[in-house]
Amino acid sequence: MIPPSFTYRRASSVDEALDLAAELGEDAKFLAGGHSLLPLMKLRFAAPEYLIDLGRITELSYVRDEGTYVAIGALTRHHDVNTSALLAAEIPLLAHAAGQVGDPQIRHRGTIGGSVAHADAASDLPAVLLALDATFVIRGGSGTRSVPAAEFFKGIFETALEPGELLTEIQVPKPASPNAWSFQKFTKRAIDWAIVGVAVQSDKVALVNMGHTPLRASAVEAALASGASVADAAEHAAEGTGAGSDIHASAAFREHLARVLVRRALEESRSRG
């Protein structure tokens, strides 16, 4: 519960953060809200020598209307995503899901960029952004690149981010029927991470905590595309997934939950949209 010692550096701009990252190399980690990184350090599962604090980079905290898509700065807190009027109107799935992360304290510290960069398959927002076909804007020493969500999440806590690269913006296309959404988060307690979660936007379905990365329920989407009923399509929810067993649930129960929750999510999104 006491982290090993580290050196703290604060960046006040994106350029400074990138310079610091280049200077300090592989032993440095970016610190955003700290709500994933600091617990790992306290348990001594992570021991970076340097922390580059992004917390004061206010230029990365925004929710902006860009016409066909909404741009969200990586440092935007979950609370600000949750309460954004723009998102409530255009992408209510994302606004709602951000309000389901942890508890109010966590939502006032944790950032959308931190959640995406950390890429915990049990986290809510990565799967939601996958269902929404978001694009992640990355800046590094060699410039800026954009990676679609479908190519971003590579493995357990592994993403397309290279060491020293900074996630700066999340671009979320406005769905054609914004109200056709549902987010089913199954937990034992309100504060918990999802045992299983399901994000639906129209006929796009993504799963939380059903494998090493957030996953699209492709078999469900394919069934829907070929005209299957919601109930029949939902039966395919666990196909191609790789849920694990832990003290909260067995893999078999997770697969069962995925089927039930996908069905409920599709029913709800259709009744809304």
Partner: peptide, 8 residues
């Protein structure tokens, strides 16, 4: 009585 126990 966790969800899994009840369901099982």
């Amino acid at each position: 009585m966790t969800p899994e126990r009840v369901w099982t």
